[in-house]
Amino acid sequence: MPLDPSFIGRTYPPTAPYEVGREKIREFAAAIGDANPAYTDAEAAKSLGHPDVIAPPTFPFMLSFQAAAQVVNDPELGLDYSRVVHGDQKFVYSRPARAGDRLSVTISIDAIKSLAGNDVLTVRGEVHDTSGEHVVTSIMTLVARAADEAGEE
């Protein structure tokens, strides 16, 4: 059953602030094998003009994806998460996330389309610091495959 297009434009309440920690950034940078000193060495980050260590570009996905659970688990929308794959991901940055940030995500549904029987959902997460400063916009496309096509590709 196709998703209800009246959900287009729906915005969910901002998430509780997530505090970005130096050691979480270090752990994430290690997991992607990235030795850029801006992620782990505050002095190196400061020499680039940052107040503290910064997070790798894809780090904010963790926050936006957690926040998108509001959409995925919305019983009124009725998305079958077992059939959902991540189709596209885009970030538009005002600045990098950095240690000490307290970040809140506001999720909106930008689009719902039906393509070849699959539901394609565009979910936007606006990430702001608690001061209200915009940090990054994370736009993800979630594809809910038609039931009989699950597993191909």
Partner: peptide, 24 residues
């Protein structure tokens, strides 16, 4: 994340990336 490293290693300051998008 790995693909981004080609860009961030090139520019040095990862903050130079102002937009980044992919299709899986």
């Amino acid at each position: 994340a790995e693909a981004a490293r080609v860009v961030t290693d090139w520019v040095g300051d990862p903050a130079a990336v102002v937009e980044y998008g992919v299709r899986f």
